[in-house]
Amino acid sequence: MTLRDLTIEESFPIAFHQDLLKKQSEHFVNNSIANGAIEGGYKNIPTELPPNNIIAPLMINSKPPNLLIGTYIKKNWRVILTSMLIGGVVWYFLDRNIKKARLRKKIKI
Rank of each mutant, 00 (worst) to 15 (best):
M1L: 11
D5H: 02
L6C: 07
L6S: 14
I8F: 03
E9Y: 10
E9H: 06
E10R: 05
E10P: 04
E10T: 07
E10Y: 00
S11R: 15
F12E: 11
P13G: 03
P13E: 08
A15G: 02
A15M: 00
F16V: 11
F16D: 03
H17S: 14
L20Y: 05
L20D: 02
L20M: 07
L21A: 13
L21Y: 00
K22Y: 08
K22Q: 10
K22N: 13
K23A: 14
K23S: 10
K23I: 01
Q24S: 06
S25I: 05
F28H: 05
V29F: 03
V29C: 07
V29D: 03
N30A: 11
N31F: 07
N31G: 02
N31R: 08
I33V: 13
A34F: 01
A34S: 04
N35L: 09
G36C: 06
A37N: 15
I38M: 04
E39N: 14
E39A: 14
E39W: 07
G40H: 02
G41P: 01
Y42N: 06
K43H: 05
N44E: 05
I45V: 14
T47W: 12
E48D: 13
E48Q: 15
L49F: 06
P50N: 09
P51Q: 06
N52V: 09
I54M: 01
A56H: 05
A56Y: 02
P57S: 10
P57V: 09
P57G: 08
L58T: 04
L58A: 08
M59C: 12
N61P: 04
N61H: 08
S62Q: 13
K63I: 11
K63V: 11
P64A: 13
P65H: 05
P65K: 01
L67K: 09
L67R: 10
L68I: 09
I69K: 02
I69M: 04
G70Q: 03
T71F: 02
Y72E: 04
I73Y: 00
I73G: 05
K75N: 10
K75Q: 14
W77C: 11
W77T: 00
W77N: 08
L81K: 02
L85C: 12
I86S: 11
I86Q: 03
V89T: 12
V89K: 05
W91S: 13
W91P: 04
Y92E: 06
F93G: 04
L94A: 11
L94E: 07
L94W: 09
D95N: 13
R96Q: 04
R96M: 00
I98V: 15
K100H: 07
A101H: 06
R102F: 12
R102T: 10
R102A: 12
R102W: 08
R102C: 08
K105W: 12
I107Y: 00
I107G: 06
I107C: 02
I109E: 13
